[in-house]
Design a protein around this nucleic acid. Structure first.
Length: 564
RNA sequence: GCUCCUGUAGUUCAAUGGAUAGAACAAUGGUCUUCGGAACCAUCGAUGAGGGUUCGAUUCCUUCCAGGAGCACCA
């Protein structure tokens, strides 16, 4: 149940406004109730009258409705807004089901493409955002009842693969099957460095690329080994990070049949034309520069393979929506890609979305790039985070065994890295800063985890059974506690909003707010020592908030611990 | 040169058309006969500059300033 949505439906019905003509939002402060609508402003505009009068009328109409009556304790008009104060019964009802995933009814499929590393290169900090944000979005959509397909679109074909093979043939001293990803990366770096002075290297790479595209046996065998070893390494890091298993890790190579067909097909249908020896799709109508889909040496490009990927997915997966979780820098590429797809009559009825995110910058606010050797490896970040969490855990809990500390440190270290990213709006750049990244203070993962552990501990001490959730008794709570309960009941509304805008940070911020309110709450209101009725009600509240924290952190890919 | 993104407190962030711009860190002062102090309470402090649209602008438009990214054979 989505509270805002339910309320909105009634307001729409009574006012005659379209659902998207006005908004219903969580109120900023208790004095404004729990949810507010600006419907009166919109209506007043239409009728050319005062919002205040319209609001009073609309309020009266809503009050006369039996359904609305059961949902709210009262309605208030203030400054033209209509404020909704939820009733304890309705809030309790919402709270009881707030952590239950939505049932999959409409078969709406969301395809999330994220992480997408290149073979032959270790995962660096640059992959962190795509991987963590994509993983969270996949979990969020699943929770909301969508059919979710995930795909890491690995760069494993074309010139990149050709260069790797050329580099291997030139410099390597091991059988290809024994090549680690570090070896591959060293080979690749050496190759690109030398390439500047030795144009014959580039020629060689091109030759290898062509051989691979012709699927000559030796090339394919070598390429497969390189790809396999790379993916093994990616999977190891994904496990450490604790992200969902990908439905697919197809890579560009998977779509190669389609890629080969893209150019002739576009030419035949008149979508593409020659220009300066290469093949382009004009995008004037979209106000964009043309997109190059074939090089003058007849080689394919990223754009070609991306178009092919759209075609293949349209045929096999039939998604309703595709989320490309890829850095900001590629904004133009995706604008062109989407426009080109439309031009070619592809992806009709499919919502293609570039879920972009800011870069991770160096201390000098310049881009971190592999070439200048300024890369920070993903693995380093995780190691550092865990190390820091471990020393803090030791300090805080000297009574715990080394093994317990290890478990806690591993969980909190990873959680901090994820939370640090997911609590920020993805659009802004992040200046890479070890102390910030690994911060365990303030609005951070440990704060939410700590709150969870404390609340869980109270319930445990009371020997409360999970099914004894006393959320029927919200009316037994005092005013301030009731506010907390209603806040928890609005969890699913937040998740819905996070999905609509593809902004996981909305959930992180909500959880932080909920945790802060909870901390203030149990500081002030005793649970275990309270009189029987209040005790039962408060235990119910503690358990509900616990469940919300656990579910919410879960959506961010962060597991909870009973003890930290 | 063209296009796009960003500019909020000393610092890092939140709020993207709504009510009195919200946190954290730092600083300062408090809470303890503790349902786990990785806690709670309080003080200090901000929308780059100018114009416009709107009942209402951090949010939309516009000019300027500052930073960043992208712009055909890389991915």
């Amino acid at each position: 149940m989505f509270i805002a949505e339910s309320l909105k439906a009634y307001v729409a019905q009574k006012s005659g406004l379209a659902q998207d003509a006005f908004s219903m939002f969580a109120s900023e402060r208790p004095a404004f109730g729990d949810f507010s609508t600006n419907a009166a402003f919109v209506l007043a505009q239409e009728r050319n009258t005062s919002p205040f009068l319209v609001a009073e009328d609309l309020k009266r109409e809503l009050e006369e409705d039996g359904q609305v009556q059961s949902m709210v304790e009262r309605l208030e008009v203030k400054n033209g807004y209509i404020n909704f104060f939820l009733s304890p019964e309705f809030a309790a009802q919402a709270l009881r089901q707030v952590t239950k995933p939505e049932k999959r009814t409409a078969q709406e499929t969301v395809l999330v493409e994220y992480s997408s590393p290149n073979i032959g290169k270790t995962l660096s900090i640059a992959h962190i955002r795509s991987t963590i944000i994509g993983d969270a979005l996949a979990r969020i959509y699943k929770f909301l009842g969508y059919r979710v397909i995930t795909d890491s679109h690995i760069g494993d074909w074309g010139m990149l693969a050709g260069k790797l093979i050329a580099a291997y043939k030139l410099f390597a001293r091991k059988p290809v099957a024994k090549l680690t990803i570090r070896d591959m990366q060293d080979l690749y770096v050496r190759f690109t460095m030398d390439e500047k002075e030795k144009p014959e290297y580039t020629q060689m790479a091109k030759k290898e690329t062509v051989k691979l595209q012709r699927e000559e046996k030796d090339s394919i065998r070598m390429w497969q080994a390189l790809a396999r070893n790379s993916i093994k390494e990616f999977d190891r890091l994904y496990r450490r990070l604790g992200i969902l298993k990908f439905t697919y890790q197809h890579g560009e190579s998977h779509y190669r049949r389609y890629t080969e067909a893209v150019v002739p097909d576009c030419v035949k249908k008149g979508y593409a034309r020659q220009s300066e020896g290469s093949m382009i799709i004009d995008l004037d109508k979209a106000g964009l520069p043309p997109m190059l889909i074939q090089k003058s040496d007849e080689g394919f490009l990223y754009a070609t393979s991306d178009l092919a990927t759209i075609i293949e997915r349209e045929e096999t997966i039939k998604p309703n929506r595709v989320l490309y979780v890829v850095a900001n820098e590629q904004a133009l590429h995706f604008e062109q890609l989407f426009a080109a797809a439309r031009t070619c009559g592809l992806a009709q009825g499919i919502d293609l979305v570039h879920v972009k995110f800011g870069m991770i910058l160096g201390q000098d606010k310049k881009k971190l790039s592999t070439r200048q050797g300024r890369t920070v490896l993903l693995e380093e970040v995780l190691d550092e985070a865990i190390k820091k969490a471990e020393s803090i855990a030791q300090q805080k809990n000297p009574e715990l065994s080394a093994q317990e500390i290890q478990t806690i440190a591993r969980l909190i270290g990873i959680a901090s890295v994820k939370y640090n990213d997911l609590s920020q709006n993805r659009n802004t750049d992040i200046v890479f800063d070890w102390s910030k990244m690994l911060s365990l203070d303030g609005n951070s993962a440990p704060y939410a985890l700590y709150t969870y552990a404390r609340l869980a501990n109270i319930a445990r001490k009371a020997h409360a059974k999970a099914r004894a959730l006393g959320v029927r008794d919200l009316s037994r709570l005092e005013r301030q506690e009731f506010e907390l309960a209603k806040r928890a009941a609005a969890f699913k509304d937040t998740v819905r909003q996070a999905a609509q805008e593809n902004l996981p940070n909305l959930i992180a911020n909500y959880l932080y707010d909920l945790a802060a309110r909870s901390n203030a709450w149990y500081e002030q209101y005793p649970v275990l020592s309270a009189p029987a009725e209040a005790r039962r009600a408060r235990l119910g509240l503690a358990q509900s908030v616990c469940a919300v924290l656990k579910t919410g952190l879960g959506l961010l890919g962060i597991p909870v611990l009973e003890k930290i």
